[in-house]
Simulated scan of single mutants.
Amino acid sequence: MSHRFASANTAGPVWGLFLGALMTFVGMGLWFNTTLAVMPERQEQSLAVASMLVGLFLAVYAGREVCRQRR
């Protein structure tokens, strides 16, 4: 379409980097909260690990897309 912005194609991977970093920090916060708790629960540890893995995967994939679009 003629009214599309050129920078709209690069906004997705940048938001992916931001969301990936946010998910990783949330997972780290959950992990530290679980390890410092008196009675740690398995579900909280699993949720922390899952959110860290999703955040890292998202950040790596978005970073790859940012580098690929700059070429």
Score class of each variant (00 low, 15 high):
47 L>A: 13
68 R>A: 02
53 L>F: 13
5 F>S: 15
70 R>G: 09
14 V>H: 03
10 T>K: 11
57 F>N: 08
7 S>Y: 12
71 R>P: 05
46 S>H: 13
16 G>E: 03
37 A>V: 04
5 F>T: 12
14 V>M: 08
62 A>W: 03
49 V>W: 10
5 F>Q: 12
69 Q>E: 03
42 R>P: 00
44 E>A: 14
41 E>C: 07
28 M>N: 05
12 G>V: 14
44 E>I: 11
17 L>N: 06
53 L>D: 05
52 M>V: 04
48 A>K: 02
49 V>K: 08
51 S>Y: 05
56 L>C: 12
44 E>D: 15
53 L>V: 11
36 L>A: 15
36 L>C: 11
64 R>M: 02
22 L>I: 08
65 E>C: 01
14 V>W: 03
42 R>G: 10
55 G>D: 06
46 S>Q: 09
10 T>E: 12
42 R>V: 13
55 G>L: 13
19 L>V: 13
38 V>G: 07
21 A>G: 12
44 E>P: 08
57 F>R: 04
2 S>P: 02
57 F>S: 14
17 L>A: 02
54 V>F: 11
49 V>G: 05
33 N>F: 10
71 R>L: 09
58 L>S: 09
31 W>H: 15
40 P>G: 07
69 Q>A: 08
37 A>H: 09
53 L>A: 10
61 Y>S: 09
2 S>V: 06
12 G>Y: 04
19 L>E: 08
32 F>W: 13
20 G>Y: 03
1 M>E: 08
68 R>E: 02
6 A>C: 01
71 R>M: 13
64 R>H: 02
37 A>W: 05
51 S>D: 06
32 F>V: 11
47 L>T: 07
27 G>A: 07
46 S>P: 00
71 R>N: 10
10 T>G: 12
40 P>S: 11
22 L>G: 03
50 A>R: 00
55 G>K: 06
20 G>C: 07
67 C>Q: 05
22 L>D: 02
13 P>Q: 09
16 G>H: 01
18 F>S: 07
44 E>V: 12
50 A>E: 03
62 A>N: 00
37 A>T: 11
7 S>W: 02
31 W>D: 07
10 T>M: 13
46 S>K: 07
9 N>D: 11
19 L>F: 13
32 F>T: 09
12 G>K: 10
69 Q>S: 06
47 L>V: 09
46 S>C: 08
41 E>T: 14
15 W>C: 15
19 L>K: 03
42 R>H: 07
59 A>T: 08
11 A>G: 00
65 E>T: 01
31 W>S: 09
52 M>W: 02
46 S>Y: 14
35 T>A: 09
48 A>W: 03
71 R>A: 11
65 E>V: 00
20 G>I: 05
8 A>R: 07
59 A>D: 03
32 F>E: 09
45 Q>H: 09
18 F>P: 00
57 F>P: 02
36 L>N: 12
19 L>R: 00
35 T>I: 14
36 L>V: 06
14 V>D: 03
65 E>G: 00
5 F>H: 14
15 W>R: 06
2 S>A: 09
29 G>E: 14
30 L>C: 11
